[in-house]
Amino acid sequence: MEKGFTVTEVLIVLLIIFVSLAISLPLLNQLQHQIVPSMTFAQLKGDLYYAQSVAINRQQRVQVLYSYVDDRYLVRVPTTFQLLTEQTLPPDMDMYYGSLTSIDFLPNGNVSRFGTVTFRYQDSVWKLTTYIGKGRFRVQKQ
């Protein structure tokens, strides 16, 4: 007598695998809808903190420029044009209006201007608000 699986047993196992995949795929889409904005804004906050720390550490102005046309931002030292970082937003995310086109972190860590930048990802709207003085900012879902 040979040991092994029958065709029926193999088909039942494959059926169970396919059913569990069919159930989990919509859940993965919902998970992606939550992960993409949180990862994007974590990166943005990290880049803003980095710009602020470089300004304090080097005692020179650091600029964060927002490009609404191609949905990206960059961090640079304006006096030397040294690019510190450049990030492009995910394909489904748009930077669509705001009162800020740039933020300058001063050598003491404060910002030179205040305002907002608004982001849209699928059906949700997020706002980055920069406060005058002390370089504080926050990102919140609208």
Rank of each mutant, 00 (worst) to 15 (best):
V117Y: 02
L31F: 08
V36Y: 07
P37Q: 06
V125I: 13
R61C: 07
A55Q: 13
Q60C: 12
F41L: 08
V75S: 01
S102D: 14
A22N: 11
F81A: 06
Y50G: 01
N29I: 11
R72I: 00
R61G: 08
L27I: 13
T80P: 03
N108Y: 04
G46R: 10
R136H: 02
V62H: 01
Y68V: 05
S99D: 07
G46Q: 14
Y96L: 05
V54I: 07
I56K: 06
R76F: 05
R120S: 06
T85N: 01
Q34W: 11
L44W: 04
I103L: 15
V117R: 00
P107H: 04
Q32A: 03
F18P: 04
R113P: 09
I12K: 08
H33Y: 12
Q32G: 01
T88C: 07
Y121S: 03
T40R: 08
N108K: 04
K3M: 06
M39G: 09
S102T: 11
L106F: 09
K134A: 12
L11H: 15
T6R: 09
T116H: 09
S38K: 15
Q52F: 10
V69H: 13
Y50Q: 13
S102G: 14
F114C: 09
Q59G: 05
S20F: 05
D92I: 07
V54E: 01
R138H: 11
L83T: 03
D70A: 07
Y131T: 12
Y49I: 14
L65G: 03
K134D: 08
I132W: 00
D92T: 10
M39Y: 12
S67H: 13
V125N: 10
R113C: 13
A51P: 02
Y96W: 11
V54Y: 00
D71S: 03
I12Y: 10
K141P: 02
P26D: 01
P26M: 12
T79A: 10
T40V: 12
F18S: 15
R120F: 07
Y131K: 10
Q87H: 12
N29K: 14
V139K: 03
N29T: 11
W126S: 15
V117G: 00
Q34D: 12
N57M: 02
R76V: 04
L65M: 07
V64S: 04
G133H: 10
T79P: 01
V77F: 03
L48F: 06
V117Q: 01
I56C: 08
S67I: 09
V13E: 02
P90A: 00
D47W: 03
V13N: 05
A22G: 15
L15Y: 08
K127D: 09
I17H: 15
Q34C: 08
T8W: 10
L128Y: 09
F105P: 00
R76K: 14
N57L: 02
R138C: 06
T88M: 10
Q43R: 07
S67W: 02
I132E: 01
L89N: 12
Y121K: 05
V125D: 09
T101Y: 13
R58V: 10
